Structures are given as structure tokens and as C-alpha cells.
Computed example of a mutant assay.
Amino acid sequence: MLSKSMTRAPNVMTSRATLLFLVVLVMLSSVSGEAFAHAVADGDKGYIQEITGVNLIAFLYLGAKHMVTGYDHILFLLGVIFFLYKMKDIGVYVSLFAIGHSVTMLAGVYFNFGINSYIIDAIIGLSIVYKALDNMGAYQRWFRFQPNTKAATLIFGFFHGFGLSSKILDYEISSDGLLPNLLAFNVGVEVGQLLALGAILIVMGFWRRTPSFLKHAYSTNAVMMGAGFMLIGYQLTGYFV
């Protein structure tokens, strides 16, 4: 028969794992607005402005870096897959998100169509709030209605794509080799998304095996919702001020 100290040990470990997960979310939510909006690094911007022609490797790297360091994209992805257990379902939702942001990113840059970066980043923050509330079952409790989660993922993917295109337009990149470079950037974004998704799934896989997952799922999404509201507030303040 196990002693009380031995049976308490796994509970302590799972509680610590849950606490660590929440701390990571709090850290993401407390990142400065500039980092939270995945702004263009000065070094990257200067490099892109100087080069001309087809530079596939450079844009591939920048796309991957842009997604991996884009905390808003990562938080939205976390919300999307939070209660998805089957890889088939995860693949469907991630593909919808990828299609959405790829279409508007490529179209926005190629046709030089941009949306005010403060407004689009505020909408991206709203997408995080929306998904956190969805995971918390708020819409069913408040309105007795469940929005179409697949359609919402695609639609918010469009807005995330405009967020990406607005950052690329900040590069003021050369029109020489624009289309190949954009395609390389988009491939890099998808690579970065897969890397971020892989890390999230590994952590979530361990956490879901513990009793603390369902116990702390609500509070975790509440923290994620708070991060979304912080991004909205920061961006709207920047727009009006």
C-alpha cells in the first residue's frame, strides 16, 4: 500500500506543471505591446530594405521567425487546439487557419493593400478573447448558441493574415522578385507555425494526462482571455493616442 507522501507526490508534480503553464501564459500576456504585436525587428527591416531580387532563404527564415515570435498567433493557436484531442481535428483547424492567413497575407502584400496596424492587431487580440470565451463555454451559457468554430477559425485567420501583410509592408521590400519572396515568406510562416504547434502539443499532451488539466482549464483560458484584452487595449490606445 502506498504511503500518503507517495500518493501526494504525483499531485504535487501535476500542480507544479499546471502552475508553470499558467506562469508562461502570464508572461506572454505581460510582454510589451510591441513584442506582443510581433513588430518587425530593426535589424531584419534594415536587411530586407537593402536587398533586391529573389532571396528565398532570407524570406523563409523571416517568415518562420515572424510566426514563432508572434505571441498573438501562438495564443490563438493554443486556444484553437486546447480541447482538440484527435490529430485529424487538429489538422483541419490548423489548415483552416493557415489557408486564411496565407490568402490575405499574399493578397495584401502583392496588391499593396494594408489595414491600419493598430486596428488589425486589436482584432487579432479580439480573436484570442473570442476563442478563450468559446473554450470557457460562455456563448452557450449567455446566448444558448454555439458559433461555428471552423468558420470562426477561417475568418480570424484572414485577419491574422492582414496582420502579417501589414508587417511585411513595413519592410518596404523591393518589387524585384516580390512574388517568389512572398511565397518563401509564407512557407516560412507555415514552418514556424508547425514548430510552435509541435511545442504546444507536446506540453498539452503531458498536461492532459494529469487530473489538473480539466481542473485548471477554465482559469488557463481566463488568463489567455486577459492577454487578448491587454493586446486590444494597447492597440486601441495606440490608435487613438
Rank of each mutant, 00 (worst) to 15 (best):
Q193N: 04
I48S: 02
D72K: 08
L195D: 05
Y171H: 01
F213N: 03
A138R: 05
T237M: 13
L20A: 15
V68C: 05
N135E: 12
K150Q: 14
M87R: 11
K65Q: 12
F97R: 00
V92N: 10
G228T: 04
G79V: 04
I128V: 12
M204D: 00
L133T: 03
T14W: 15
I57H: 07
S117V: 14
M27D: 14
L60I: 00
W142Y: 13
K215A: 06
K4V: 03
K167W: 01
S127L: 03
G70F: 07
I232V: 12
G226I: 13
T104H: 09
F206C: 05
L179Q: 00
M6G: 00
K45Q: 13
T14K: 04
G238V: 08
D89V: 00
N135C: 10
L169T: 00
I202Q: 06
V187T: 04
S3D: 14
F97G: 00
D134F: 12
I155M: 15
I51C: 04
M230E: 12
T69C: 08
F36E: 01
V241F: 15
H101F: 15
G161W: 13
L231I: 06
I232T: 02
V103T: 07
P211E: 10
I81W: 10
A122P: 02
K86E: 15
A138T: 10
S29F: 10
L2H: 14
T237E: 11
L164N: 07
Y93Q: 12
K4D: 05
G205M: 13
A17R: 06
T18R: 09
L28Q: 05
L197I: 04
M230F: 15
A132E: 08
I128M: 08
Y71G: 03
A227Y: 08
A199P: 04
N186K: 04
V94A: 07
L214S: 11
A98G: 02
V241L: 15
Q146K: 14
R209C: 11
